[in-house]
Design a protein around this nucleic acid. Structure first.
Lengths: 327, 327
DNA sequence: TAATGGAATGTAAACGTTTACCGAATTGCA
DNA sequence: TGCAATTCGGTAAACGTTTACATTCCATTA
């Protein structure tokens, strides 16, 4: 490792001058700058990020907290975050908690110990108390899932409205018996989407059969299958299903196929998230598209502003109904 | 931020003692240790990773280089890496290059500037020259894709044998006209899998029709569709298809379905990687399972050993043929 | 020519640790 | 009780930067 001292010595100037050449353009004489730059080239010197970080007490590292790396919903968001981050000279540390509180602690500690400058939480299973505590002392923004009491800024979509649009679409194409495969009600988005579901029923004066509402404890493929298996047994079988995630919907689709029923003729199906696989199924899946890339880039911009001490406003972005073959 | 000085002052000891309490268990008297620990609790002090890193000149950060975060093949590998890393007190920085050389440079620089201790490259599109140069000065291991001339240690599977097993399976269930949807021949694994494909044909004395071999330039769903669209037009239509990735296979499946053909009755289909979605299609996909988790954990162990200056051996792991509904 | 002022550069402290080295305190033993 | 041996703890340097402050240099002006 070449250090700034060696460069300084070699160039016959002080370390301060070398540092200035690197960090403060225009403050150093053309002639000296030239010499210094030449030596830097020659020794191919790179400033030690470690030293710099210690001195400036920032790490230029952003934490992105997701529940699991295998959930494709987050890939677009991450892309958005990453692009903004890199553009602004930050790197991102992708942290999958796998709903393990220990993992969460490890990542929170990175922030506390200044190894990271800020955190974007996208994990619905996050410990809200800890997150609030953290947010009171460090830069934190929430993306997608957020906290109702609103002290942490967030970027999200209007889940209630999105669910309402999904169900309204089903009603408009003639369905009256519509099931909801929801996740656990402890999640805010689950409660909001349920409200949207109910709102659409109310608006069209349709009765809701409680049998049509199924809650799963997670968003996996198997949970979708299980939910659908149940829904196929209820006395008044639904003719359409709204699942709050594409993976759940794909699970449901598999189960419908297994029972020799046809989508959309026997049962129409609509998902949520527009993950890339929703376009690869047969039939392709109608779904609600969240603006993943924009959510990510917005969240990253917000976080960086927060780090720089600016005030930031929470943002609610628009969703979009993507009508495909399954409805 | 509480610093080690404040703790020392509060506890009435020197900073050295505090540091020892934290880092060298058993070297400090029960009594002083107690007092120090108490103060640490009280001020809830956490050592600054920045300071420590500067002093020890290590960052305990590992880079995992993947082509794209949206490729589910890597999720299991990442899990394996992450678990080993955390267990050994390292964190991992997940780096998606998106085949952008600039990104690559940024990540390589993290290593050069000591912000990361080592790198696991899983990106087939990586610049081989740069990687070799990097590996000569820093800890690097390759996972899944590797360099033939062998100066960088790697963990991988036997691609030729795996492809051979896939094709042999198709031959054994009666197929003679088998197509190969391969990626670009510039990738080592593509050449190896092709060799395995040919080996099976040779062993069973079957002729290969060049029309049955289709090369794509990337591993996407659309490429799979396009490949299949082509294969359905060739004069001697194949009755089975071996695709070198599940996503390609899922694309092919979609195209077969679109043409009202049936899998496996009209065309049998086999993929590669056993991504989670290969189990969600209708029909479920026969595929070759790479031991992703083990590959990841092995690679991480190798890298950490390398960082610690130990010698490491390259590893070739076993694959497995997963027979499901598509064959 | 000498004084003045502003620009360019240098000096040294600081960031928060770890650790080699050394001195102080404690223990065990005669 | 006194001494050696051992253990424990303190002092201070080092890691590689950035930056406030001090100094030097040079050009300008009287």
């Amino acid at each position: 490792m070449t250090t700034i001292q060696e460069v300084a010595k070699q160039a016959g100037v002080s370390v301060a001058t070398v540092s200035r050449v690197i960090n403060t353009p225009g403050i150093v004489t053309e002639k000296t700058r030239h010499k210094v730059e030449q030596v830097i080239q020659q020794l191919n010197y790179e400033p030690s990020v470690l030293g710099r970080n210690l001195r400036t007490s920032e790490s230029r590292l952003l934490l992105a907290l997701i529940p699991s790396i295998s959930n494709p919903f987050y890939t677009e968001i991450i892309n958005g975050i990453e692009n903004v981050a890199i553009e602004q000279g930050y790197n991102i540390l992708l942290c999958a908690t796998d709903s393990n509180p220990n993992r969460e602690d490890i990542y929170f500690n990175l922030l506390k110990s200044k190894l990271a400058d800020g955190i974007i939480s996208m994990d619905p299973t996050v410990n809200k108390t800890k997150l609030l505590e953290l947010a009171s002392r460090y830069p934190v923004v929430q993306c997608s899932e957020y906290d109702e009491d609103g002290s942490i800024s967030y970027v999200t979509i209007n889940n209630e409205l999105a669910a309402y649009h999904a169900v309204r679409h089903l009603i408009k194409i003639g369905h009256k018996k519509i099931a909801l495969i929801n996740s656990h009600n402890k999640y805010l988005y689950a409660r909001e989407r349920r409200r949207g579901f109910e709102k659409a029923f109310k608006e069209f004066d349709l009765p809701i059969n409680p049998d049509w509402i199924y809650n799963t404890d997670s968003l996996g493929f198997e949970q979708g299958q299980r939910a659908m298996r149940h829904l196929l047994t209820v006395s008044e079988r639904p003719t359409a299903v709204f699942a709050v995630s594409d993976i759940l919907a794909i699970g449901a689709l598999k189960e419908i196929n297994n029972n020799k029923l046809h989508v959309p003729n026997d049962i129409a199906l609509i998902g949520f998230d527009k993950i890339s696989f929703s376009n690869m199924t047969h039939p392709t899946l109608t779904t609600i598209s969240q603006p993943g890339y924009t959510m990510g880039s917005t969240a990253a911009t917000m976080l960086i502003n927060k780090i720089k001490g600016k005030d930031v406003q929470s943002v609610v972005l628009d969703h979009e109904l993507i009508i495909r073959e399954s409805t």
